[in-house]
């Protein structure tokens, strides 16, 4: 499973960087979305994947009886997803407003602040 995930993550990062290097601001935001998803998958994979062993402690015991999956990476990914969702919705609104004001979808036309 891990090699497959590694390949998927690599493709996601590469696609994201490629999209961010385009001039269109819509593609820029798509790149950001892919990038945050790639990071989430990376956390999930690098922390180790365990199949079919939920981290449950049987009644009466004080610790799990066998090797279980680590629940923490899932909590981290959940937090990161929520944050990325908020930030990306902001980015979508931002490019819409920017398009309305600048009247262009092209980053090369946004040079007023670079003089």
């Amino acid at each position: 499973m891990e090699p497959l995930m590694a390949v998927v993550i690599g493709i996601l990062y590469a696609t994201a960087i490629y999209m961010m290097l385009r001039r269109s601001i819509v593609k820029l935001v798509i790149g950001l979305m892919l990038l945050s998803n790639a990071a989430n998958l990376l956390i999930f994979t690098s922390a180790g994947m365990t199949r079919g062993a939920p981290p449950l402690i049987p009644e009466g015991a004080s610790e799990p009886l066998r090797q279980v999956a680590d629940p923490l990476p899932q909590a981290l990914v959940l937090t990161a997803i929520v944050i990325a969702f908020g930030v990306l919705s902001f980015a979508v609104v931002l490019i819409r407003r920017a398009y309305e004001i600048v009247k262009a979808d092209d980053l090369d036309k946004m040079k007023d602040t670079d003089t």
Binding site: M20, L28, L32, S36, A38, I43, A47, R97, T113
Partner: peptide, 28 residues
């Protein structure tokens, strides 16, 4: 402000993602 914000938001999000990836690898 819009033009400045697009650059600011993109670069800062990029840095956040690099930070997050590094945290994930470190935890691993």
């Amino acid at each position: 402000q819009m033009e400045g914000a697009i650059k600011y938001v993109t670069l800062n999000l990029l840095s956040s993602v690099i930070f997050l990836s590094a945290v994930g690898l470190l935890y691993g």
